[in-house]
Structures are given as C-alpha cells and as structure tokens.
Amino acid sequence: MSIDAANDLITTLSTAAREAGLSVLSNEQSTDYNQRPTTRFVLALTPDAPAERRLQLELSEAFDFHKPDLLPEMTSHLREAAQRLRNPRPDAYVSLAGLPISYSDFRWPFHRSTSGADTYIVHGIVRLEDGSASPLHAKISASMTVTFAEIVPAPEQPYAETFIYNAVRKTLDQGQLEMLKSGNRQPVPVTTRYYSRWQKKFFFTDTNDASRIEFLAMKVYWLSGVLGGSQPVWIADPRDAQYLNTTPQELARMAADLSSQGLFTLSGEFAAATPSLLARAEQYHAKMHAALDETKPTFNEDMRGGHTNM
C-alpha cells in the first residue's frame, strides 16, 4: 500500500468527517475482495462513543472524493451518518413487511463477479433484530449490472450504501431472502428497474400516507421501543424516504400526526416510543412473524445444498 495515498485519504476523510460533526475513532489498512488496498474508518459522534453507536466506512486507498461530482454526495453521506449515530442502534432499520433488521460485515467497494456474469458485487449480512438476540440472518450478494453501474458516481460505500440497503429491504418485502441460522449467500439484484433516468431518482416501493404512517410506527416501535429502551430515533431519514418513494419532510409531517395521537414523543426530527405504542407489541410481533413466513420460499433450495456461484 502506498503510504502517501493512505495518508492523503486519512487526512481528507478526517477533515470531511469533522465538518459533518463526526469523530474518526480509528483507521486501519485492509484489503477488498480482490486484495486491493483499502482503509477502514470507524466513525462516531464522540471519541468515547460506545460500540453500538459507531459506524464503519471503508474506502479504496486511491479513492479521491474531492472532485465536483463526488464531494457533495460524500458530504451528504457523512452528515446523514451523523444523524443516524444519534439513534440507539444506527445499524438497525425496519422493512415495510415488518422486519426489524441490521446490516453488517459489508466488504466495500464493489468487485467484479467471479462467476462470469457482467456484474459488480458486494457481500454483506442482514440480521433479524427482534430484541431476542435471534440467530436468524441472511448472507447476501448484492449485484448491480454494468449498465446500472454507469448511474453510480463511484463503486464506493458512500455512493452505494443507501440503494443497496434499500434493495435488500425490497427483496425481503418480496419474500426473496430467507432468514436462516446458517446458509450460503443469497442474491440481491439491483438493476435499472429501480432507477428513473428521466427523473434521476430511485424507485423501490410505491407507498401512500397510510403505509408510510404504518412504517414510521413500526420503526419507532422496534428501533426506539424494543432495541433502544425508548430512546429517540431519527424519523426523517433520507434513506427511508428513498425506500418509501417520499421525502424526509413528508415523513416528519406524518410523525407529527402520530405524535398527536400519543404514539410518539417528538423532539425535532427524532421520535421516542410511548407506552401507547409499546402496547401494540402483539400486533408488530405478529406482523414480523408473518413476514418471516413469507421469506421461506422454495426458490433457494439449491443454495441450501451449497449449489451457488456468487
């Protein structure tokens, strides 16, 4: 690894993180899937942040984001990360189908498929987060076509994490990822059907006010009530807005409606679960179990037997 290149990346990322209100707790040299050098950063709001309030960012050693077409999105990524790090579990999300999940062990950046397919791949793990230390998880192999890759400014984590996470949620909603105690990697295809070149935006799910309100209630129930001890969570997350095909402003407006019903305690863009929301436990657990049942298809029996090439 070039020491100068690594030092340049560390310096520029540390500066960008500081401007976003983040502290770089550590950096270490690593390698990507193809053994090319990367640097892994651990980010938090404060130097003494506990482990659950930290996020990892991995970048290619030679990556230079100080370019007009790259810097704005890196800046947005870091600012949004700073907001998520105020959540009790910044790695946790909820799907429309009702699954509380977390993302971990992603190996950035993308790498070319080794199976001969004309795609770029990133591997990671999605875990069920129901508050019971469940062993259920899905090892995923998210792929984007070469055509789709032309849309992405760079095959690096800050430019792809949001749409990859949302593609995973969409695939779970479709019942096409199975949560297992162990298993092989399962595919999450990301194609141009998720993107409008005309509008220059992603489309994952058509939702209306009712489904968005239900989503917010589930999110605050699981992320604040169950996983966070009723600590507040960010309800105007642009990542959720992309997934739901809406805006952060609309999510904030709907959260205010739920707060007026006594389900949230609202402070700015952060909402905490109330006893009234926690009283819906049976409803949300039933929805979660129904969603898990939907993720037990027969399509991946070959993968259970180890017949996969990703």
Rank of each mutant, 00 (worst) to 15 (best):
S60L: 00
S60A: 11
E61F: 04
E61W: 02
E61L: 07
A62L: 03
A62Q: 07
F63T: 03
F65W: 01
K67N: 07
P68R: 01
P68T: 04
P68W: 05
P68M: 00
L70G: 00
L71R: 10
L71C: 10
P72D: 14
E73H: 11
E73A: 11
M74R: 05
S76L: 09
S76D: 13
S76R: 15
H77V: 01
H77Q: 11
L78P: 08
R79C: 09
E80N: 15
E80F: 15
A81T: 11
A81D: 08
A81G: 05
A82M: 06
A82P: 08
Q83R: 15
Q83C: 07
Q83G: 14
R84S: 12
R86Y: 08
R86V: 05
N87D: 14
N87E: 15
P88Q: 14
P88E: 15
R89Y: 10
R89H: 13
P90N: 09
P90D: 11
D91C: 08
A92I: 13
A92P: 01
Y93P: 00
Y93I: 09
V94E: 09
V94P: 01
S95M: 08
S95I: 13
S95F: 08
L96H: 11
A97F: 04
A97L: 11
G98R: 03
L99N: 01
L99E: 04
L99R: 06
L99M: 15
L99C: 14
I101Q: 02
S102K: 09
S102R: 12
Y103L: 12
S104N: 15
S104P: 08
F106R: 08
F106C: 07
F106Q: 04
R107I: 03
R107Q: 10
R107H: 15
W108P: 01
W108R: 00
W108K: 04
P109A: 10
P109Y: 03
P109T: 14
F110W: 06
F110N: 00
F110R: 00
F110D: 00
H111N: 13
H111K: 10
H111Y: 14
R112K: 12
R112A: 04
R112W: 06
S113L: 11
T114G: 06
S115T: 15
A117M: 13
A117V: 09
A117H: 07
T119H: 04
T119E: 07
T119F: 05
T119M: 04
Y120H: 11
G124W: 02
G124D: 02
I125R: 12
R127A: 07
D130Y: 12
G131K: 10
G131N: 01
S132C: 09
S132D: 08
S132G: 14
P135F: 08
L136W: 10
L136Q: 12
H137M: 13
A138V: 13
A138G: 04
K139L: 14
K139G: 05
I140K: 05
I140G: 01
I140W: 05
S141F: 03
A142Y: 05
